[in-house]
Design a protein around this nucleic acid. Structure first.
Lengths: 339, 339
DNA sequence: CTGAAAGCGCTTACAG
DNA sequence: CTGAAAGCGCTTACAG
């Protein structure tokens, strides 16, 4: 069955398609009588205006793109859900794009989104410095970075103060008496991870403790990778760290598992602190001490910047960089250094 | 900067737009020489054909919709990721829609997807019996149900044998010597949950054990709900169950937490079994025994039915109902009944 | 207050 | 092998 078009409605209602269009969009004064008649016909015919056709006339597509490393990673799926809800209430749909932080995927997705004329794209993935992004920006597609920083493109960004988050973690561990620490980090294209480590390191430095390069393990962002990296440290006879800072909860959970397998008690013999405060951190035993990002607020701000900002016309408005404070969530995986 | 169109390319290459279109789509023999020239120009101008315009001419939009209860629920985010990957390799993008199993959300999303002329929709959510669905089906938008059953609409469906999954759980518990059991179920609009409970019950019945209605708690699908429902049972002085079957991992985790707070040891004093085998079940301590759905395969089948099936023309092809076998994953949360 | 007409960026017969 | 023209379903000035 072919979809009913504006022509069918016009014919049934005995008016021109222009009048139907005006009635729908509340433009150019249609008499109440005709309007009611038109709406009745639309109802009867189950008429749904084609977004495709109106988009072609320069109207919006009411579709947004979201680039994240991986929807199946709880941190990002929580972000996706929050964005989806805002988008939905504003009448938009969300195309979700998992990039695995890989350049080719980022570029391919960005081009797809461009071809589909999305009204804007939210970027929460690393590897953002491809040419596809600049190309998008040139065509004045609104772009907002979320939880990530963009070096090259002049897009708004909303992010957590990752440096501060790292410091928070360090201060917590320091206060518990730890001094031999190690960190599980993500790869250095992930700007947020880099900042977290920098912040952690700086706080240690201020406390007079050096964190040598070899105490920082670079891992993929997965439980498995965290487990392997942590296991390597726990096997050591001497110089075994008493506390581990993990750049995200996945890594921290891996460390937790490594500790259990190695027979190392957490937090008595080893403190572990994560980052992101995902649902995972509430579910482990011991529950994970972690650094929380103010997710809801970040998402709200990013969304408003993306969609509300369209009113400004082109991208001439000043670039904003909004930094939100992280928070320490103390649970059970950290404790005082044993005597 | 305005986007470059097919006209710009045609002018630059000194040909008509029809020839450019033919070159791009590999139709109607364009001479190699012109084709090369055209591609060179497209490259130089960074030309990206508009999906919008070609969709209006009756071509595909290369966009698919996915309805699930909640992307931030690990089971569904894992499904979303698997589908996204298949879609992506086939050149499609995925609009993710979290419905919370609420009728209004389902209907609103379905209408949105219809207006956007998606090429198909995958439905993994309950409440599928709204009129918006039938309306979609009437307009011959391909629909495939995944991990859910549809009573009314004649869409293909790919699902786990939930009845069998419930039986598997029961048999496992029975084998361990349990006889006082209780279940945490989802609401009865969720067809998969209903089947799981039926299967569980039937296996008990075959073993000569009755499962009274009052041993089945109906919960929202969340850790919190599971925790509360489980706590209610654990508080009892007498008739406390020695084993709990939970219709999904979230509920099982809630039960785990309730047990810990009540000082009930798992699995020594209480066995708990979940469903779905999400990442969460690997992360708890004790790790969760659970029933796994063959997710990758289900997703693959559903996707092929949705997209591959388009070749058949209209929806005349016979309705398929593919049922996949679940599997028992024994971990640490179940054990023999204490003497 | 209402309608005829042009146009958005493509694709598709149909001539040549 | 190539191009002129019609048309997809809308919106938007512009007349009346």
């Amino acid at each position: 069955m072919k979809a009913t078009t504006i022509y069918d409605v016009a014919k049934e209602a005995g008016v021109s398609i222009a009048t139907v269009s005006n009635a729908i969009n509340g433009k150019g004064n249609v008499s109440k009588k005709k309007r009611d008649e038109i709406f009745k016909v639309m109802e009867r015919l189950q008429y749904q205006p084609s977004v495709i056709a109106s988009a072609l006339m320069g109207k919006k597509t009411y579709t947004l793109g979201l680039l994240i490393p991986d929807v199946s990673n709880p941190f990002f799926s929580e972000i996706a859900r929050a964005i989806e809800d805002l988008a939905h209430s504003a009448g938009y749909s969300l195309i979700v794009c998992s990039t695995d932080n890989r350049r080719e995927r980022v570029d391919k997705y960005l081009r797809l989104l461009e071809q589909k004329s999305v009204d804007g794209v939210l970027i929460g993935t690393g590897m953002e410095n491809g040419e596809a992004l600049s190309q998008l920006a040139e065509k004045s597609v609104p772009i907002v970075m979320i939880a990530r920083e963009s070096a090259d493109v002049s897009a708004h960004c909303v992010l957590t103060d990752d440096f501060k988050g790292g410091s928070l973690a360090a201060e917590h561990l320091l206060a518990l008496g730890h001094s031999r620490m190690a960190v599980l980090s993500e790869h250095d294209e992930v700007s947020s991870s880099v900042e977290r480590v920098r912040g952690f390191r700086f706080a240690l430095f201020e406390a007079g403790i050096a964190l040598p390069e070899e105490s920082i393990a670079i891992c993929d962002s997965s439980i498995k990778a965290g487990k392997e990296a942590a296991a390597a440290w726990l096997e050591r006879e001497e110089g075994r760290p008493s506390a581990l800072f993990c750049c995200n909860d996945l890594l921290a959970i891996g460390a937790l598992q490594a500790a259990r397998e190695a027979g190392v008690r957490v937090p008595e013999q080893l403190s572990i602190i994560g980052f992101d405060d995902t649902i995972l951190s509430t579910v482990t035993h011991p529950a994970l001490t972690t650094i929380a990002q103010p997710m809801e607020q970040m998402v709200k701000l990013a969304f408003d910047l993306l969609v509300g900002g369209e009113g400004h016309g082109d991208s001439s408005s000043i670039r904003q960089r909004i930094v939100m404070p992280p928070g320490l969530i103390v649970r059970e995986s950290t404790g005082p250094l044993e005597a």
